[in-house]
């Protein structure tokens, strides 16, 4: 679940989790090839695939009540980029519930070929 804990965006006061939408077959390869400024790979442990239907199921939890949303936030160097967004008022146990639910909903983890 630690990989799915949201971080607080101090500008928008929302809990945010950066994601890539799997729009096409190139999305996974693109994500796995992403590198940091120092040249190392951004996602050394691979990428987790979560069906959007599972996210929608979490959005309908009574404790969440639609306070979990998602968007598309295309960046100059990342056409797939988006965010999972969570209302700032969501309590810590519910944030844990959402993170655990996302981890449980992972359909697979895809690793980069060495």
């Amino acid at each position: 679940m630690n990989l799915f804990l949201f971080e607080l965006d101090k500008e928008t006061n929302e809990w945010k989790q950066s994601i890539n939408w799997e729009d096409d077959e190139g999305a996974v390869g693109f994500t796995l090839a992403r590198k940091k400024d120092d040249g190392s790979f951004s996602y050394k442990c691979g990428v987790a695939r979560i069906p959007r239907a599972e996210i929608d199921k979490i959005r309908n939890f009574p404790q969440v009540e639609g306070r979990l949303t998602y968007n598309r936030d295309v960046l100059d160097d990342n056409q797939y980029h988006g965010n999972l967004l969570l209302d700032q008022a969501v309590t810590k146990p519910v944030r844990g519930l959402i993170a655990s639910s996302l981890a449980l909903a992972c359909s697979c983890i895809i690793y980069r070929n060495q």
């Binding site: 939890f61 404790q63 309590t91 810590k92 146990p93 519910v94 519930l97 655990s100 639910s101 449980l104």
Partner: peptide, 18 residues
């Protein structure tokens, strides 16, 4: 403010609680 949470998949009834 400390709490607990529980989530299960379809096999255990898609439960969720916090």
């Amino acid at each position: 403010q400390s709490g607990w949470f529980l989530v299960s998949d379809r096999t255990l009834g898609n439960a969720n609680a916090a």
